[in-house]
């Protein structure tokens, strides 16, 4: 559905160069620090910024060449941009109805009510949780085949985040051919949702793995400095020394479970992976 081939974009002091692919029916996570390039990548996919070099394909075409009808299949939620602040939900409904053929007004109303969104207030008077929910519901309101969500849960408390993730899961269940690109710096949200994850840092992809492998095969190994010297590094991806021990990231924890039975081995979460990988790439 979406393919980026050596997409390059240059700004002052920042250079993006990424390649990625999102097949049909796939939920892909884009994770990275603030300023790493997530939003630039997403804006490139949407045709909001134009590449300096490289190819972008969405539904087989360059984003700027998509017809208005093809764009109906894309649902978007941007983190810092949405409907006019003086709009109420009624205004939003009128605009969505006039824009999207497959907009389902009753369903949208019901979902807004279910999420306790106020119908009589202007968006500028919404809480940040409400604004975020409105953006996500807007993206999902017209049966789009491709959802592009830029930091949909940023700045929200855990309950609001869970509400939004639940909405996204339900959306996927309704039609398994739908694809989602979701960017975030809250990796726990992505762990329970995405099929695969791209880690982006400083404008480059530093890791691309199936979530299943990240959670099932990756692991953290904690050893002393001496043990680290003699450790078989075949599957060690990164390591971090501190005063009392060395923490290693492995992509095959079963190997170390089998061969180093007495060693402390833990499941790795995406946050751990990020910290260890970025630490290495700093030195590297």
């Amino acid at each position: 559905m979406v393919r980026l081939n050596n997409l390059q974009k240059e700004y002052k002091g920042f250079k993006l160069n990424v390649s990625l692919e999102i097949p049909e029916g796939c939920v892909t996570g884009l994770i990275g620090r603030n300023g790493a390039g997530k939003t630039t990548t997403i804006k490139s996919i949407l045709g909001l910024v134009k590449p300096t070099a490289g190819e972008i394909e969405v539904f087989g075409k360059a984003p700027v060449e998509l017809t208005a009808k093809e764009k109906q299949q894309i649902g978007v939620a941007l983190s810092e941009s949405g409907f006019c602040m003086i709009f109420t939900i009624e205004d939003v409904i009128k605009v969505l109805k006039a824009s999207y053929e497959d907009f389902n007004e009753d369903e949208f109303r019901n979902k807004c009510t279910a999420q306790s969104l106020p119908f009589d207030k202007q968006i500028k008077d919404f809480s940040s949780g409400m604004k975020a929910k409105l953006r996500v519901l807007t993206a999902m309101s017209h049966k789009a085949k491709l959802l592009i969500l830029d930091e949909p849960t940023a700045g929200l408390d855990v309950i609001a985040r869970n509400d939004i993730l639940a909405l996204i899961r339900k959306y996927l269940e309704e039609d398994p051919t739908r694809s989602i690109i979701i960017s975030s710096h809250i990796s726990s949200d992505l762990e329970g949702l995405c099929d695969d994850i791209y880690m982006i840092n400083d404008g480059k992809i530093i890791l691309h793995e199936d979530t299943d492998r990240l959670l099932g095969n990756y692991g953290l190994i904690k050893v002393s400095s001496e043990e680290f010297e003699t450790l078989d590094k075949k599957y060690i991806v990164a390591s971090q020394k501190d005063r009392f021990s060395v923490t290693c990231l492995t992509s095959e924890k079963q190997f170390y479970i089998d061969n180093y039975p007495k060693t402390v081995i833990e499941n790795a979460h995406i946050d751990d992976i990020i910290v260890l990988m970025l630490d290495t790439s700093k030195e590297g």
């Binding site: 804006k43 949407l46 045709g47 909001l48 700027v64 017809t67 208005a68 009808k69 764009k71 109906q72 894309i74 978007v76 941007l78 810092e80 941009s81 949405g82 409907f83 006019c84 602040m85 003086i86 824009s99 999207y100």
Partner: peptide, 21 residues
Amino acid sequence: SYDYNDNGLSFIMTLPNKPGD
């Protein structure tokens, strides 16, 4: 002005229209 406020133009351009529209 209202479109440009709060960075709204980015979202508007993701609606199903060609840029010239």
